[in-house]
Design a protein around this nucleic acid. Structure first.
Length: 423
RNA sequence: GGAGAGAUGGCAGAGUGGUCGAAUGCGGCGGUCUCGAAAACCGUUGUCCCGCUUGCGGGACCGGGGGUUCGAAUCCCCCUUUCUCCGCCA
């Protein structure tokens, strides 16, 4: 969440930054400033009255002890008056605070200064590409044919028991899932991350904390009776572990990794690009999450980017890295790198990871701070990245490593699968 | 699901209506002593908001919300949560 102090300091700059994300925030910003001014006036008035009331309460106590009940009675009357007016002011203040909160919470994070404006995925900047792109040739198969031929995944069965987008993994297909999850977790642990296994459902406060609410309401599955949300990513529970926490500076960076199933309604995305594993309602993902000192968070972002690149190299997949333009960046992000792998038979790039620095945006929402040597609490930076999301990796793996009517498992993964080929 | 007992500062733990933002201990930070360290001793030690601004003043916060009272950590109601016992159960 943006801080009122930031807006107060330079509202025009905030408006300019948000325009990079194609958001016209002027009306909201002006409203926020108007509310803020009124709020501060009310607060001053209220505080003064409360100060008087506190003073009276103390005096009454002393007067009673001294037996001066008449004098005390006079003060009591004044106190009763104050009670009425403070109550009115308190209600007014609460309403203004709520209004300010409601206005602030719909404003997205400010993009990093390096983020270029742009309107769609077309405007993203390709900053890196590696691996060999095999030209489409005879014998190549799209992954949904491979999974069907070898009985790795049954999409229809998933439709029957749950619905479209909930595949059932079978035999070597299931084992491949488990192998990838273990591989990704182990690689992260080697890189210094601590493994966490979080709940798959979170409460409302957590959904607000990482910014899924109110922005992505409607994209999450909800258990309405219990007011719980199925997590769209492990980012939500793992980052919220540190909600309302003040860390010691020497505890930074906090590095956590979690495997979780992820649930997304993907409302409005039916039709294109949903074939096979391209877009699912439930999928598996290993997520890396860091909490870092503001001075070091961009260096950390680069490290995380390199970690993800390393995974794709070990899986021998051609990939590219994009720096997202303002228009394609998420609500909460200040800077995002997307990773895409080449799908040989579909002849297109598939997004498999998104690595972002949220700076203080999430941390402010969840009051995540750290305390340095000077004893002052300071808001931390949060970052996260997929390392990695399984379905499209599986798709690319099957398509890119398919030859002579067999899928050849990359060497790095064989210790995990226990088999070298699927045929 | 039923019954009972709790929830207080980084931690432990006092406080059952009045100068309590809260005793005490531990921990942390600074200092004295020491070649240095330990011990001992002295001091200090929460978060947020508002106002004049290197500092000071005011306000809020004792799980969350509401109420009683001139005055609530303390009394009442609701919620959340933890523990113990019973029931059910992977």
């Amino acid at each position: 969440m943006l801080q009122i102090q930031t807006i107060r300091k330079d509202a025009e700059e905030v408006i300019r930054c948000l325009s990079v994300k194609n958001v016209d925030a002027r009306a909201i910003i002006e409203e926020v400033l108007r509310i803020d001014e009124e709020r501060r006036g009310i607060q001053k008035e209220l505080d003064d009255q409360l100060a008087e009331a506190n003073q009276i309460a103390k005096s009454v106590g002393i007067l009673f002890k001294e037996g001066k009940t008449d004098e005390a009675a006079v003060l009591k009357d004044r106190s009763a008056e104050l009670k009425k007016s403070t109550k009115a002011l308190e209600e007014k203040l609460a309403a203004l605070e709520e209004a300010q909160q409601q206005a602030l919470i719909v404003l997205p994070n400010l993009p990093h200064s390096s983020v270029k404006p742009g309107h769609s995925a077309e405007d993203n900047e390709i900053i890196h590409q590696e691996g060999t792109i095999i030209p489409l040739s005879e014998g190549m198969l799209p992954h949904w044919e491979i999974t069907s031929n070898f009985r790795l995944i049954d999409f229809e069965l998933g439709s029957k028991i749950t619905g479209a987008g909930f595949p059932v993994y079978l035999g070597k297909g299931a084992k491949l899932q488990r192998a990838l999850i273990s591989f990704f977790l182990d690689e992260a642990i080697k890189a210094g991350y601590n493994e966490v296994q979080p709940p798959l459902m979170v409460n409302e406060a957590s959904a607000y904390g990482t910014g899924q609410l109110p922005d992505k309401d409607g994209q999450m599955y909800t258990a309405t009776l219990d007011k719980l949300f199925m997590i769209p990513t492990a980012e939500v529970p793992v980052t919220n572990l540190y909600r309302d926490v003040i860390l010691r500076e020497e505890e930074l960076p906090v590095m956590n990794v979690a495997y979780s199933a992820c649930f997304r309604r993907e409302a409005g995305s039916y039709g294109k690009d949903v074939r096979g594993l391209n877009r699912l309602h439930q999928f598996d993902k290993v997520e890396i999450v860091q909490i870092q000192h503001p001075d070091k968070s961009y260096a950390t972002l680069e490290e995380m980017r390199e970690h993800v690149a390393g995974l794709l190299r070990k899986l021998e997949l051609p990939f590219r890295i994009l720096r997202l333009c303002g228009g394609d960046m998420s609500f909460t992000s200040a800077l995002t790198y997307d990773f895409e792998v080449w799908s040989a038979a579909q002849e297109k790039w598939l997004e498999v990871s998104s690595v972002s620095n949220f700076e203080t945006f999430q941390a402010h929402r969840m009051k995540l701070r750290f305390k340095g040597k000077d004893g002052k609490a300071q808001t931390a930076h949060t970052l996260n990245g997929s390392a990695l999301a399984l379905p499209r990796i599986v798709a690319a793996l099957l398509e890119n490593h398919y030859s002579n009517k067999a899928v050849h498992i990359p060497q790095a993964l064989v210790p995990y699968t226990g088999f070298e080929t699927i045929e």
